[in-house]
Design a protein around this nucleic acid. Structure first.
Lengths: 138, 138
DNA sequence: GTAACTGCAAACGCTTTGCACTCCC
DNA sequence: GGGAGTGCAAAGCGTTTGCAGTTAC
C-alpha cells in the first residue's frame, strides 16, 4: 500500500495521521514474524524515545478496526499482530512462539470450497499449525 | 473415556484423583461450546461451594499436560478450553464468542495431505472460522 | 504417615483508562 | 483554534504463586 493510500484510509475514517501511527504500522509490515506489543515498543523506542505502550495499544486497535492487521491471541499471555490479511497458515513453534506464514494453493482452494458451502457468511479465519522449530529442538 | 481409564491416566502420570479434578474434567466434556475459566468456576460452585479459581487453573494446566484438552487463546482476554482433540474447525462468533465445532471430511483429507508434505513433524493445529451468529445479528 | 492437593490471598503482568499537554488539520 | 492524539501513571483484570491446612493412597 502506498503512503498516500494509507493516509487516505486514516482520514476517511476520521483518524489523524501521526508519526507514531505510521511508525507502528510500518514496523509491523516490515517484519515477517508477528511481533508482540512489547517487541514493537522496544523496537520503536530507539527512533521514538517518548513513545508509550498506551499509544501502541491504541494504535493497534485502530489498525485492527481498519482491517490492516489481525490479532492472534496465544496462551503465553501476549497477543501477536499479523499484517497478513490474506488466507494463510501460521506455522507456530510451541516452545519459542516463533511464527512463519505459509501459503498453500491447494489448501486455499479447499478452504474456499468449504466456505462456499456454509449457510452463513464468514468474516475471517485463523489457521495455526504447531510444531517445534529447529532452534528449540536442540 | 471410561472413569477407570481416566483414573489410570492420572495415576500413571503421578497425579492424584480428586473430586475437584473429576468435576472440572466432566464439566468441560459435558459442554459442546468451549467454556472459559470463569464459566467453569461459576458452574461448579453450585455442587462444590469451596472450589477455588486457583484449583481450576491448576487442574486445567494438568489436563492440558495430559493431552485431554486444548487451550484456545482469544483476544477478548480469556482463554477457552476445548476437549475436542480431534482435527476440527472452530466456528467462532466474533461478537459473543460462542464456539461450535465443525467437522468436514474433505477438509480433514486435505489437511492430512498438506501435513504429509511438510519437512517437519506437526504437533497439533487450530482452525478457526469467524462469523457473526444469528443472536448477535439481531 | 506423607507427599500431593486444595483454598485462600497476595503478587504478577499485560492491557485499559483518565487526564493534562501537544500536535494535526 | 479546536478537537483528536500522545504520554504518563493509575487502575483493572485474568492468571500465577506461596503457603498453611487437608486429603488421597
Amino acid at each position: 500500500m502506498k503512503d498516500q493510500e494509507l493516509f487516505n484510509l486514516f482520514r476517511e475514517n476520521g483518524f489523524k495521521v501521526t508519526t507514531q501511527r505510521l511508525a507502528i504500522y510500518k514496523y509491523i509490515i516490515s517484519r515477517d514474524d508477528h511481533p508482540t506489543t512489547e517487541q514493537i515498543y522496544q523496537a520503536l523506542k530507539k527512533d521514538h524515545p517518548t513513545i508509550s505502550l498506551g499509544t501502541i495499544y491504541k494504535t493497534l486497535h485502530l489498525l485492527k478496526q481498519l482491517g490492516l492487521i489481525q490479532e492472534l491471541g496465544f496462551n503465553e499471555g501476549s497477543i501477536r499482530y499479523d499484517p497478513n490479511m490474506e488466507l494463510h497458515i501460521n506455522i507456530v513453534c510451541t516452545k519459542c512462539g516463533h511464527i512463519d506464514d505459509y501459503e498453500s494453493k491447494s489448501f486455499n482452494k479447499n478452504w474456499k470450497e468449504l466456505i462456499s458451502n456454509l449457510n452463513f457468511e464468514p468474516k475471517g479465519q485463523r489457521i495455526d499449525l504447531y510444531y517445534e522449530c529447529e532452534k528449540c529442538k536442540k
